[in-house]
Design a protein around this nucleic acid. Structure first.
Ligand SMILES: [Zn+2]
Ligand SMILES: [Zn+2]
Ligand SMILES: [Zn+2]
Ligand SMILES: [Zn+2]
Lengths: 172, 172
DNA sequence: CCGCGAAATGATACATTGTATCAATCAGGG
DNA sequence: CCCTGATTGATACAATGTATCATTTCGCGG
């Protein structure tokens, strides 16, 4: 287990490998439904991957236009809709943005933890939240299928920054 | 306990009474902060009350314009922001609409159960969901304060309608 | 009552986000 | 090659939300 293969930082190469496999799986699923993974669609996925977080449709558009000057809003939204249908991308309602799914192996409920300060997003599949929501729905006659729950708050680093700023104020 | 007072349907008058008291409380809170409850703001609240559910800003605008022809988007959004700050109105991110708070007595976390078929919204304060979210946040360093959780699904009546339509199809 | 300053509104323009439409192209199967 | 459905291009538009700044209103102290 050494040689050139060991020169990647632990956090990068295996992820790239997993992503390649994920993409292959997505492509085969698409083709089996008579749908195609095209250059435009790949470009959207790559842009989200490069960002490593959420982007709005128009931020995506800017990035795509660097390579392909005649990308349009409609095209971006079409690609996003395509990937959302394939389960590879999620839409964040609270920030009007889009992000790669972190578990695109299968359809899934789950939660999106969003920091309102820095925009960081963490995707989880917490049984506690899912089952609490399910039970609440049962009591009130609602069924929650296929939808992610967005939880907006403040992440640890941002809270730390906030406390530091406060301390600063008390000193001054 | 009879006479004219008893002629209201049980579901209407007491609610109106509760709302009047709620409005009074809100007004006193506002005034104590040097803020005012004006005609325009009252009109927004009344429109939401009359609707008995969620309305988008522009749906609200249409209704306001029936009475006051020169209402503007900016005015509507300002009034909505005012009431959200006062805790009397919630914004639904997933439908871009606004709804009266059902428990405006105090600031509160809670859940908004939204039917994607009929748009019905039910506001709850479920300890199970709230504490599950809190625990999940603790594990990942997030703190969720003051924000409502939106749960989108299908309500009982709509599921029943759906099943009826399916049966219809099998017959035909 | 007057007049001051903060709060609120009016008016207008603009920014952002998301869709509809329809012709032109592309990819793959017979 | 030709047919068909999927995709794209191009354009216009709809829906949602803000910025700006002059003007008006309101509460309050003098
Ligand atoms: Zn996911
Ligand atoms: Zn953060
Ligand atoms: Zn509420
Ligand atoms: Zn329903």
């Amino acid at each position: 287990m050494n040689g050139p293969e060991s020169m990647y930082k632990a956090s990068q190469r295996p992820e790239a490998e997993a992503q390649r496999r994920t993409l292959e799986r997505l492509e085969s699923v698409c083709r089996s439904r008579g749908r195609r993974v095209t250059r435009q669609r790949r470009a959207v996925l790559r842009a989200l991957l490069a960002q490593g977080g959420a982007l709005t449709a128009y931020e995506l558009l800017e990035r795509l236009r660097v390579e392909d000057g005649h990308s349009t809003p409609a095209g971006v939204y079409r690609a996003l809709e395509f990937w959302m249908a394939a389960g590879a991308v999620h839409r964040l309602q609270s920030t009007r943005s889009f992000i790669l799914c972190e578990h695109p192996e299968a359809p899934h409920p789950g939660q999106l933890l969003i920091c309102r300060e820095c925009g960081q997003v963490v995707e989880t599949q917490d049984k506690g939240v899912a089952s609490a929501a399910h039970r609440l729905g049962e009591r009130l006659g609602f069924v929650f299928d296929r939808h992610l729950v967005e939880l907006t708050g403040v992440c640890g680093p941002c809270r730390a920054r906030g406390r530091a700023a406060e301390a600063e104020c008390r000193h001054a």
